[in-house]
Design a protein around this nucleic acid. Structure first.
Lengths: 109, 109
DNA sequence: AAATTATACAAGATATAACTTGTACTGTCA
DNA sequence: TGACAGTACAAGTTATATCTTGTATAATTT
């Protein structure tokens, strides 16, 4: 596999970001990945395997994998709530005014 | 139309909440309605009509109505992000530990 | 090296979110 | 009263999120 230098990735993105629509879509993708990773993190913090969370949710290990790898990257609110519940979490959503640079349309914490 | 007393509603709910599954579903519904209302509120704060937001989103007034009345009550993250963007908002999502009483699985602010 | 464990990949089926069009309702104002 | 503005209702179609089963991979353990 060819090695990719980070600095080149950055340069490349900066160039592509001149296309505002591309930038928008890119940010949305980042947001979804962040959400997927957060779910994986919360699960691991609970010392659960994918199969354990799956059982709580009443679904399959594979589906959890799909969610966490971002293959299922457009979750519905219901699914998000269900997952959070199974991990002993509530969800807070707020809508702050768009920041000037708005590098992140969605912040997951 | 028969007049409904609030105290009776409360009593009734309290009774029904003994069924934990009912309580859970009820809370999820509340959450979705809260989200729908928040969207309507943000739109009104921006002095936009449904048709204006619809145009920004590239959709129809009726669809916005469906979202705000909670008829479309299971929005996807993408739709939520798109709407927020059109209203000049970012989105913050966090997953606090479930509160003891957890009367609200999802808090919208 | 064989078995086990945890996760990911792949190709589907089905339920439903996203969207449409047409129309009806509820003000408000000329 | 009637015209218009803003929103909601209703019944669709289409795109896609949810979920399935089967299998593959990668890392440990025996």
């Amino acid at each position: 596999m060819k090695k990719v230098k980070l600095e080149n990735v950055n340069k490349d993105l900066k160039e592509k970001f001149k296309d505002k629509e591309f930038k928008r879509l890119y940010e949305v993708e980042c947001a979804k990945v962040a959400l997927a990773q957060k779910i994986a993190e919360l699960r691991q913090d609970s010392n659960l395997r994918q199969i354990d969370l799956a059982k709580r949710l009443g679904t399959s290990q594979q589906f959890i994998s799909q969610i966490e790898t971002g293959e299922e990257k457009n979750l519905t609110i219901s699914t998000l709530i269900k997952i959070a519940e199974c991990l002993g979490r509530d969800i807070n959503i707020s809508f702050p005014k768009q920041s000037k640079k708005h590098t992140h349309c969605l912040k997951v914490t």
